[in-house]
Design a protein around this nucleic acid. Sequence first.
DNA 1: AAGTGGTCTAGACCACGCA
DNA 2: GCGTGGTCTAGACCACTTT
Lengths: 250, 250
Amino acid sequence: MERSGDGQAGSGSGNAVGFRPLYRQVYDTLLKRLADAVWQPGQILPSEGQLAAELGVSQGTVRKALDALTADSLLVRRQGRGTFVADHDDKQSVFRFFKLRPDGDGTGMPTSRVLAIAEATASADERGRLDLVRTARVVRIERVRSIDGRLCVSETISVPASLFPGIAGLELPNTLYSLYAIRYGITIATANERLKAVALAEREAGLLAVAQGTPALEIDRVAVDLEERPVEWRLSTCLTQDVHYRSVLR
Amino acid sequence: MERSGDGQAGSGSGNAVGFRPLYRQVYDTLLKRLADAVWQPGQILPSEGQLAAELGVSQGTVRKALDALTADSLLVRRQGRGTFVADHDDKQSVFRFFKLRPDGDGTGMPTSRVLAIAEATASADERGRLDLVRTARVVRIERVRSIDGRLCVSETISVPASLFPGIAGLELPNTLYSLYAIRYGITIATANERLKAVALAEREAGLLAVAQGTPALEIDRVAVDLEERPVEWRLSTCLTQDVHYRSVLR
DNA sequence: AAGTGGTCTAGACCACGCA
DNA sequence: GCGTGGTCTAGACCACTTT
């Protein structure tokens, strides 16, 4: 791996351009491979020593890059076994992007029922959230979700049709993000949510079988992939009678 | 610094008890000093080399502990200058525990007006949240807050009277957590929030000058200090007409 | 120029999981 | 017993800030 900002009888003392550490370059190299789905979710990576030899850096430098990717929830490291591509299907990972928890006991495991799925030209809102041009097409998914069997979420999900060809014809799993990862090689890295309290409109009230005007939590989420592209917009309306949104501030 | 789990002609190969890395012990040692307010917010710590010599470990081990404390937002490191105790007074830190942001432009800087402050015997809710015995006393603070001059939050804050002697007689600053840190040596490490959508009760509606029944965001927060003691319970009711709660999922 | 944190390396040893 | 990640060390050099 080439150094970027040193040696070479340069122009005096400091670099005018930004200094880019070696481990950062290793990070980017590995991130690229993850984005390109070179390694599949759940699969094991080469050992630290092998990667170090391949990339021509020390094991410590590879370690630092791997640790950073682990901190970003893209890898999972298990002492004595190896380093794996994070599998966002397993139980603990389901809740990474799902913050609604039951007030009392219960697993809080969500289930879903799709009401409609169709392709359309992007609305102004969709173009704004997903950074699309005027003629762009999106696939819109409408569904309701239950937590521990209790109906409490109604949501509309919009994704660019160009990124998810054929998704409208698929049987959708309960956890969409694993579908994005496995079938389309798109890994959700972060999601930005804006929460508001609203009074339920007639339509959502009907879907959730409660009175119109009932207070509900509105969650406006834009999910972003490894390359920082916005790839999904999700507008959820949640009843919070028996459920709450959990947030941990550090 | 003593090793905890090695050497000493032990009982074979592995330790039955948990293995505790050296850097973790260094972390705990430094954390203790921070909790005891040995170093004040904003103050500089000894250099890595000095700490390493004092504790009898290598510089790399000290570094790992300092990096962990930095990741926990307890320290700030500045290349070429030194390592400092995080000062949660500066502008960027105000928003660490304040997630309400204006929908449009504006700084979103909050202001406060205290309505009442008084000591009382802890209610059942307060005892549960703050882990108190039946006879414990608390100080209750009621206040309203504005964002960019717009009235939108009403909240009740409860703290154990034993931890904050004399707080009822003080002029309260806008950012309570810096008061906790500077005057009482209590640093808030994390806060757990539960959000719900509710219809405004008559009292809160009056305080916020809107109609009873208006949907509002209810935030139930328990703040925890460095020793993981719950030290503050805060129940906030927020209008979200021009403001939203921001959450970033990683 | 001196001092600080940041990067990078090389090597030793430890804890863990598995065959 | 072997291979993996995890810890710890020692030392060199780099980048940044201040004197």
